[in-house]
Design a protein around this nucleic acid. Structure first.
Lengths: 346, 346
DNA sequence: TTGAAAGCGCTAACAA
DNA sequence: TTGTTAGCGCTTTCAA
């Protein structure tokens, strides 16, 4: 199991080992003849360069750290997929770690990644608290935040325009005739969520609607929490004709709860999500939603990080990508703008 | 951005750098007093050990390669999640790569991983062809195949008992009264799929049923392919009361096609999947299925690999885990065993 | 208990 | 065009 080294090849080829290195690295200061001869011998001996040793002297591992709350989450797994593809196409590999959306774990993982000498880190942070914990490390390693809008923080991030996305959602529901729209799952501690709520509020004001909120006191969004919140909501008289969920997972929880109390979607209640995770496109679900362009998010993030690494950039960049409306079948028009429907237990 | 090294710490502490190393590695040949003094200085100077340099001398990177068809696939992302957790708990990190279910990419990734000096590789292979391509590398690096049954191959693998799972599925449908059960999505080139089909056939024989197959000529299973196949199937008179899909993704495709032609599930047709991916548990879907124990698969795989690595095992182990029936709402009993229902176009 | 020194496999500067 | 050599940051003998 002992690996063949450059020295073994050199001995076999009858040259010095720096000559082998030259053949391998594509150095110009070597004759075509010896190069091809050496490469041939490398192949015969099953030689593979030891990237670790190379990293030592090059001071670059061509490794990127990817820290996300959990790959076992449709949004994150899609993001991770595109990040791997992008990075690999550019000669980098990914060390993946799940943070469980815990700032302290994020901090530990940062240390670990720095120790592993990754060339840069891509982080989908738990929330604003992440920034504070991570601040001391940010000067030590190129980092790009992904998915979370850090507002005016002097750090690079790539995110979708959450404010605009929420506005688009309200606009869509308004045009379908809805006037009583509940914003479901408002959450603290994340700028992403705050911006969505702000966009909702701004659009309500624009259209002369009264904003209504159903707050999520849990620290994250999930189907389960959405379901619990919705059960509670549906236990009282419902005075809304549409629900705008803060995330698709919340929307899925709502769908489940609605089914149990016989509220038909979109018959009795229109439902709009945010994120466009794969689950929403499944048969029987057909969740209308606001799309976060995940592939774009991934490629802009990788691009931004590699630019930082390769060009040793000192500054930071804030990239805000456009959301898009994805119409499926969970939202329906209300007949007549002045008409009101009430659903749920009386 | 220059990192603090062991030498910097040694200078600051007024000791030799091997003493610092001793403090860091927990060596017994150092006084408690100097150890804590040095550790204190390390902290003050923000010292982080350079894992790459350590790997050079230790000849171990504490890195595991994980090669899967795509993280953007609910089964694989769940597997990847548990593998990361397990590995991290044991002091290892994961380099993740997507192979696109392409044996040639798998081969390239093996080379890459070996070059990166990972301590071992976890691979969810594209199929049997993978084994042939990868064979030359298997003696060079500890490898565990995951998810795919390699039958009698002298390599370690962990998989679910696909044969038994298929039997369980047929048994379940039979007990619900179904006598005309179609096996949907039979595929070539993968032992997993072959074993499922064999288990189905064996159970049919056991119960005196005639086996029926709908073959999948595509090289992989997906909702899209399942949908296309199902559309075709539903364009003719349907002579089955239940469909046993080779994978949950196939089943989801069937669900979608069924909805379009107004075949009710489970009213007109019972549908059973295989894998138990998260999507099947979503509201409105409620897919009954045979579960592959993903967390268990992950932990047994990591355990097997680490045992190979740490104890330098030469042999191989075949671990076959038990499947389980997950009852949700896509299968219904047939009234009276002799009664037949026919659904679909006439 | 500590220090000095070799060496992990490679790249790159310098010499020849 | 090729060989010699230093050194990347660390662990681990061997000496003291």
């Amino acid at each position: 199991m002992k690996n063949v080294t450059i020295k073994d090849v050199a001995k076999a080829a009858g040259v010095s080992y720096s000559t082998v290195s030259r053949a391998l690295t594509g150095s110009p200061e070597i004759s075509e003849e010896t190069r091809s001869r050496i490469l041939q011998i490398c192949k015969e001996m099953n030689y593979t360069v030891n990237t670790v040793a190379r990293s030592m002297v090059k001071k670059s591992t061509k490794l990127l750290g990817l820290i996300i709350p959990s790959v076992n989450n449709p949004f994150m797994s899609e993001l991770a997929y595109h990040i791997d593809r992008q990075a690999r196409a550019r000669g980098y590999n990914i060390i993946l770690c799940n943070s469980s959306r815990d700032p302290e774990q994020e901090r530990e993982l940062f240390e670990l990644m720095i120790g592993r000498q990754v060339d840069g880190i891509l982080l989908s942070p738990a929330g604003m608290e992440s920034y504070e914990k991570l601040y001391p490390y940010l000067s030590r390693i190129p980092t790009v935040f992904i998915g979370e809008n850090l507002r005016e923080m002097p750090e690079s991030y790539v995110s979708v325009d959450n404010f605009r996305g929420a506005q688009m959602g309200v606009e869509y529901l308004y045009k379908l005739g809805h006037r009583e729209i509940l914003y479901f799952g408002r959450r603290r501690g994340s700028t992403t969520h705050q911006l969505r709520a702000e966009g909702y509020a701004a659009a309500c004001e624009h259209y002369g609607l009264t904003p209504h909120y159903c707050n999520n006191s849990f620290s994250s969004s999930s189907i389960k929490y959405g379901y619990q919140l919705a059960k509670q909501l549906f236990s009282q008289e419902l005075r809304y004709t549409a629900i705008f969920a803060a995330t698709d997972t919340n929307a899925l929880g709502i769908m489940q709860a609605a089914e149990e109390v016989n509220i038909r979607i979109p018959g009795d209640l229109s439902l709009l999500g945010f994120d466009n995770i794969r689950d929403g496109s499944l048969p029987r679900i057909g969740l209308s939603t606001i799309e976060q362009p995940k592939k774009m998010l991934a490629s802009v993030a990788v691009e931004t990080l590699l630019d930082k690494i390769q060009n040793d950039r000192d500054g930071y960049s804030h990239r805000i990508l456009s959301p898009a409306l994805v119409e499926r079948s969970s939202c329906a028009p209300l007949r007549g703008v002045t008409e009101r429907s009430f659903v749920g237990k009386r």
